[in-house]
């Protein structure tokens, strides 16, 4: 029995990583094709039918590229930083339930790797470590643009993490649990939470874009000011690690948004896991849509928006939810 559990766990981990890597590859292709569509051009469509094999070609190119290291770089930290970025990005997804529990061979299989009673906080703990990848990468490169990118990343992510945490608190108070599986089960009985928590959802989504450094919050790698920000000096697979981490973070933010506000795997007719992926795909489309539409923030506006608007707004919504949940009203 014990052995079976371990085998099951290993299978789940391998599957999760495979899904995330596949998700990364085709989110990137989707993004490039959609950006092409938004900008009235074609995008990559030469490799395979409709560009379907483009990610494989990109992967091969990345593997074969020379791995550069600047002369003055801090060698250990320079190598460590992309690993941290990728590792934290992958581990957050371990607590997200991809579907309802399945019963096979008399076994109940949960579609998440771990189901801790405070799953949401564990996810936050891992994702809060992701910023080290950017800061350390920027510092270790010993390049002024990289350093500025790393410093911007740390300031931005710290600022927006607060509002994000407050936005999520409303869900925890409403459902009375921080377990992601139970949050979905609550929504099965009481309806999806996006409507009662609409303010929290909007704040969560905005901060989610900022936390993943996507346009319009991509100041750490603003190419018109900082060359490529914290990953200016990286090439080959180390650069690819940063890239993969960014896209997987996008998938993670979408997955948590779906779990908290849009009923996770719930939905009629189709199997639960398909519903989950459909909802995540919709979120990913919105991410790409926003990137194609909005220009980048100016740095002071970014800070003002985070501290002077999002944080108070999240706090007010949080207090409102508290009043409502406690039954004072």
């Amino acid at each position: 029995m014990m052995l079976l559990q371990v085998v099951l766990l290993v299978i789940k981990i391998v599957l999760l990583i495979a899904i995330l890597m596949g998700g990364f590859a085709y989110t990137m292709l989707l993004e490039r094709r959609l950006l092409g569509f938004f900008q009235l051009r074609l995008g990559p469509n030469r490799v395979g039918p409709g560009g379907f094999l483009q990610p494989i070609a990109d992967g091969l190119k990345m593997v074969l590229k020379e791995d550069l290291m600047p002369d003055g770089a801090d060698r250990f930290v320079y190598r460590l930083a992309p690993v941290i970025a990728l590792f934290t990005a992958l581990s957050v997804d371990a607590v997200i339930p991809f579907g309802a529990a399945i019963h096979i061979f008399g076994l109940t299989v949960y579609l998440d790797i771990a189901n801790p009673s405070i799953g949401l906080l564990i996810a936050f703990a891992f994702s809060s470590l992701g910023v080290y990848g950017l800061v350390l990468g920027g510092w270790a490169s010993q390049n002024k643009y990289s350093l500025l990118g790393g410093i911007r990343a740390s300031a931005q992510i710290i600022s927006y993490e607060l509002a994000m945490g407050l936005a999520v608190m409303g869900v925890i108070m409403t459902t009375g649990t921080a377990n992601l599986y139970k949050i979905v089960l609550y929504q099965q009985h009481h309806g999806w939470l996006w409507l009662p928590q609409i303010g929290a959802f909007i704040i969560y989504f905005i901060t989610g874009i900022a936390e993943t450094n996507r346009t319009p919050f991509d100041l750490p790698e603003a190419e018109s000011e900082l060359v490529a920000g914290y990953h200016t000096e990286y090439s080959g697979m180390r650069f690819a690690s940063y890239y993969i981490a960014e896209y997987i973070n996008m998938i993670t933010v979408s997955g948590i948004a779906v779990t908290l506000f849009f009923g996770g795997w719930l939905g009629p007719w189709l199997p639960p896991i398909i519903w989950f992926f459909i909802k995540v795909a919709i979120f990913l489309f919105v991410f790409i849509w926003i990137r194609a539409t909005l220009p980048r923030f100016r740095y002071d506006r970014l800070m003002n928006f985070g501290w002077k608007f999002l944080l108070p707004a999240a706090l007010i919504y949080f207090l409102g939810t508290a009043v409502f949940v406690s039954g004072v009203l």
Binding site: I122, S128, L129, I151, I158, E161
Partner: peptide, 20 residues
């Protein structure tokens, strides 16, 4: 979780901000 979120995720990031 609180230890990681508060100390590793927030305070040490500020430390690194200043140090870098």
């Amino acid at each position: 979780a609180a230890q990681v979120i508060v100390y590793a995720g927030a305070i040490m990031v500020l430390f690194l901000f200043v140090v870098t």
